[in-house]
Nucleic acid binder design. Sequence first.
DNA 1: ATTAATACATAAGAAAATTATGTATTAATT
DNA 2: AATTAATACATAATTTTCTTATGTATTAAT
Lengths: 119, 119
Amino acid sequence: MYICSMYSSELIKGTLKTIVLNLLKDNRKMYGYEITQEVKKMTSDKIQITEGALYPTLHALEKQGDLITEKVYIGKRVRKYYILTDQGKVTMTDRVNEFADFMKTMRFLLDLDSTVQNA
Amino acid sequence: MYICSMYSSELIKGTLKTIVLNLLKDNRKMYGYEITQEVKKMTSDKIQITEGALYPTLHALEKQGDLITEKVYIGKRVRKYYILTDQGKVTMTDRVNEFADFMKTMRFLLDLDSTVQNA
DNA sequence: ATTAATACATAAGAAAATTATGTATTAATT
DNA sequence: AATTAATACATAATTTTCTTATGTATTAAT
């Protein structure tokens, strides 16, 4: 997963890229460790991204042209900021829309709109 | 995946057990092929479960005691109906609630409530 | 002085799909 | 009548994506 205290690991698979790309929208620049902390904070520890999952994903997104990096030295420590490219913005929008549509489909399929769970 | 014309494969990973268990609720009994067709129909072809994914999943759920089977012969053709056990009903509820909660978390994380996509 | 936190990275292994293949019956089409 | 499509099961090889483990190094806190 990304170490999830709350969700069974297989549930969350496949959403990491969507989460990362979405966090970087509005020209925000973030570095890896910051992403892990922000997601942990925003989800009240429900989703905790592991470094073993995050860094390869960031490298893949960079390789495919969705992200560019900016190295900054904080004292002697390296920090790699990630920024969305124009292509990355398109990918981000596609991914988020796709996930939103997927949720809609799943809500219908699991009959969730008539239950309490989706409050 | 389950052959998804619409969703990128990694998005859907991990929801198959939840989908299957949920379809079998209310003491409904279904066989494998029927499940693939029902999901295809209910999602307007957006989610198409492949046999390579479904059968191993059904066998796993049976092995762990969530499902029992009932063989029926239609002429010379075998049909294996799957039925939720009492344990399976608990698993089903847990899984569906977990997914509902996960969607809630993701809606917040992706800031979907303030956009058009979640209509 | 030691531990925790920050910050990066990669590699081995596991889980859950995909893709491909196989068997066999029955219905539909040409 | 012969072929194709649909029904219905199954498994095996491969790929993807994550987990778990490990590694290096700096800085802050105890």
